[in-house]
């Protein structure tokens, strides 16, 4: 006799980087988020385009309303976190600020917003690892850790 097993789709978490174009730390948010999306947690993460979220992007708004999010901001202006709270109607599950994280671990910020070099890989890995850790915390929650 066949045993019926309920197959549940993987829980999803929205990663919202500020993508700050002016600052090296903004570039770091992009590279770290892509690493999480493409390599570390491809089945559990999606990215939310912040400008599209503001411009009433229906998919973005709907996702933020219904799923847990992690904001990744390059500096303490916390643009991503502020916009998510204002327009998403709720706080992100976790808010990461790159400048704080690098300082905590004694790692230098990249020297350029234009291009990251080999020595910046440590910073990318640190931020990506932190995001992935927070994703794991969310999806391991028994109840409301994402749909």
């Amino acid at each position: 006799m066949l045993e019926l097993v309920e197959i549940t789709p993987p829980k999803k978490v929205g990663i919202i980087p500020c993508n700050g174009e002016e600052l090296p730390e903004g570039t770091l948010t992009r590279f770290a988020c892509r690493k999480v999306l493409d390599q570390i947690k491809p089945n559990n993460t999606v990215t939310i385009c912040l400008p599209l979220f503001i411009n009433n992007g229906k998919e973005e708004r709907g996702f933020v309303e219904n799923f847990p999010t992690i904001t990744v901001d390059g500096c303490d202006k916390r643009c991503g976190q502020k916009i998510t709270e204002k327009l998403g109607g709720k706080k992100p599950e976790h808010s990461i600020v790159i400048t704080d994280l690098l300082k905590e671990h004694g790692i230098n910020a990249p020297g350029s917003a234009r291009t990251l070099v080999d020595m910046d890989q440590q910073a990318i890995d640190l931020v990506a690892g932190e995001i992935a850790k927070k994703v794991d915390e969310i999806i391991s929650k028994p109840n409301d850790g994402g749909k």
Partner: peptide, 21 residues
Amino acid sequence: MEDLCPGKVTTTCLAKLMIGD
């Protein structure tokens, strides 16, 4: 900014504009 028009072009973070900085 860096190669073709140094000193004539600048940028800012779009997100900063979005929060009304």
